[in-house]
Write a protein that binds this DNA or RNA. Structure first.
Lengths: 205, 205
DNA sequence: CGCTGACACGAGTCCTCGGTCGTGTTCAAC
DNA sequence: GTTGAACACGACCGAGGACTCGTGTCAGCG
């Protein structure tokens, strides 16, 4: 259950040339991942896409997993930053606050729909671990926001509330992006706002 | 976006012996899948687990995907039956109804936790397709139940409500089963009941 | 029994994959 | 310019995968 250390680089790139190589490998890894999923992200394919010999991958990474791990780490970090920014940047009051958060989050997911698709559909162990870390940080963020807005926590189990809200919002929005269901964007946002807003109001009067 | 026909069997088993072989193959496929995930579910492994030559698989199935497709289909059908039964079998009134449904669903998921884990974590295309069909049928079931209980639909977008509720409940319960978070079963059920119950009451007075 | 098609077997084929290593090239320090 | 380390290359290796096919066994029918 504990996350292992990310495997260190085999050799630390010191010259400009090699730093550029590592960069090309990671960029290529990202494109290949987005285009063909984890299934199709073979080392040879990544090397070819990077315009690099297969052996060059192993100058800097100990194995394939380390490459994809780094690629996913970068992508998830970007996505997390985007979401955190959206979340913090949409602070209004009451129902408006909820809807603002949701709109911002949805925009972030739509903007990275390909990444969301790959990360949600294929899912090797490495992604699982990243997702857990990601989710835990968002849990904490939301719990903090709840406490800030309602310091009179009383008997409300804030952590449980935050945990549940995060799963709810995460999956409803992601499902909407991936499934493209017969539910319009506004209708979905209306209902989700009602769901979350009603719940919060109920818990805190 | 359209589901393909499930590949037909290569030869239809006519004797008892061969029907038993097919059965052993599917059972073995299920065990291997649950124990080693999609990654480790190789044809050789399934054949070995079934006590059957690798070639015998291809007497009845055109390729590996067809085998796993059938295995997943069976498992999902079982799970769906379990959930549908739980859902229909827990009809009470008001908040009690909501909580009853949730408890029943949670029990069904816990009972099949291994399957839920495999189906949620690895996810080749074949599972994706099955999941969509599954989810759509549950959507319809819930929408029907909502309409039955509140024939005065008024301006409530019942389909959108059902769609959202299904995603919400699905993911919160599955996450709880898989993550084993710091949230007790009762606390989770309390909060989820409050979330769903409050929302329904708000939408229908 | 004898015959025929259904069935089972498993060594073997071909392929792709992750990863190595010997060789050649470029860079930087002197 | 020379030298040695950093870097890049890509043919190659062993493992394991899906799937085939020649051979042999078994069940049912005349």
């Amino acid at each position: 259950m504990v996350g292992e250390e990310p495997r260190a680089m085999r050799r630390r790139p010191t010259q400009d040339r090699s730093r550029a190589t590592v960069e090309r490998i990671l960029d290529a890894g990202r494109s290949v991942l987005l285009e063909r999923g984890f299934e199709g992200a073979s080392t040879n394919r990544i090397a070819a896409a990077a315009g690099v010999g297969p052996g060059s991958l192993y100058q800097y990474f100990p194995d394939k997993e380390a490459i994809l791990d780094r690629v996913v780490e970068r992508a998830v970090d970007d996505l997390e930053a985007r979401i955190t920014r959206a979340f913090l940047g949409s602070l209004r009051a009451g129902d408006d606050a909820v809807r603002g958060h949701l709109e911002a989050l949805l925009d972030a997911l739509v903007a990275e729909a390909d990444l969301v698709r790959v990360l949600s559909q294929d899912r090797p162990r490495t992604v699982g671990r990243r997702r857990v870390g990601f989710a835990r940080r968002i849990d904490a963020l939301v719990a903090g926001a709840l406490l800030a807005e309602h310091p009179d926590a009383g008997d409300v189990p804030v952590d449980a509330v935050a945990w549940m809200l995060v799963r709810t919002v995460e999956h409803v929005t992601i499902s909407w992006v991936l499934e493209a269901p017969d539910v319009g964007r506004e209708a979905m946002l209306d209902e989700l706002t009602a769901l979350v807003g009603g719940y919060l109001r109920r818990r805190w009067g």
